[in-house]
Design a protein around this nucleic acid. Sequence first.
DNA 1: ACCTGAACACCGTTCAAGT
DNA 2: ACCTGAACACCGTTCAAGT
Lengths: 195, 195
Amino acid sequence: MAYHHGDLRRALLQGALELLGEGGPSALTLRGAARRAGVSPAAPYRHFTDKRELLAAVAEEGFLALDRHAEEEIERAGADPVQRFRCHGLAYVRFAIDHPAHYRVMFGPEIPDKRLYAALDAASRAAYDRLRDSLRACQQAGVIPEGDIEIRAVRAWALVHGLASLFIDGQLAGTGASEREEFLKMVDTIFSASS
Amino acid sequence: MAYHHGDLRRALLQGALELLGEGGPSALTLRGAARRAGVSPAAPYRHFTDKRELLAAVAEEGFLALDRHAEEEIERAGADPVQRFRCHGLAYVRFAIDHPAHYRVMFGPEIPDKRLYAALDAASRAAYDRLRDSLRACQQAGVIPEGDIEIRAVRAWALVHGLASLFIDGQLAGTGASEREEFLKMVDTIFSASS
DNA sequence: ACCTGAACACCGTTCAAGT
DNA sequence: ACCTGAACACCGTTCAAGT
């Protein structure tokens, strides 16, 4: 067991991510993660003060992955700031619908006050900052009207987050966007038109 | 005990709503609701097949309350369709931030497939349909461009849902909209500009 | 310093039994 | 027809004890 060398924390996080992927948020238990790591139910408490701290680590990992995905997609989009912003929005939504359980933990109520977890807060902010930067690039290129960048960034974030959430929660049945591909086409239409 | 007369279902729903209001989603337990109603832990199973069915009833109640609130607010707004639509959006967000726990159950992952619960599905659809009708009234008055009403309605819904969710989850700290009143002002600005 | 074993107070759910 | 009592397999969490 390599866990006696100090990487039990990593093993628990890994196990938690596996449980989440296999059975959704309700399958993500502290005891289950301990089982996966081959330790007793009490062992995690040497590395996390409680379950919320494990969830915060899982959420942090999610924001890092989301940000990495967004970065890759906007690089692939080329140099045009409008195209980059458009792909950024699509990348955000695609990440959410491809990892619905992880996305839910990132925004869910199980972590009540996210400002208490500095690393999570930083990761979350970095993802938002990148979206705002994509928008600012459009503004500096003169292709969208001037105005408060913060308000425009919040609108863009709310839009992609709202679209992704409604789709994940199955609320879009009957709107002509209940299937993945139709939905992404609708996201493209809506997001591109609202910069 | 009047519960022997057939209203235990109502009493359990009432107890569930109280628990939700007092301690959030994690406090909403089947056993807790049974305790509030003065019955044994097994009694609820005569009225709900499992916990999810109780949650679906709670969520249904939430959509009905949301729709009632929206109806009242747009009536108070007068006859101008633009004003009515604006107040509709604000009413939606205000309901969410005033009843965050209830709002979370309405959209949360504890109810996996909402189409399985007909009454919940109908209540949810009614709330959406009213928002779409508010938007259609603007279109018929000629104050917003023509075009696919469904797409515009989904955009409006995603926007208010996204804004409300981000606020409830505490994700808007640092954007100048972390307090209730600043936030609602921002919602007004964003929503009015994106019909 | 890090982990185990055993315990506590909770869950959701089932099922025989009572009225 | 509706509810109880007791049980089962789970949780999160604590704490003395082991190495």
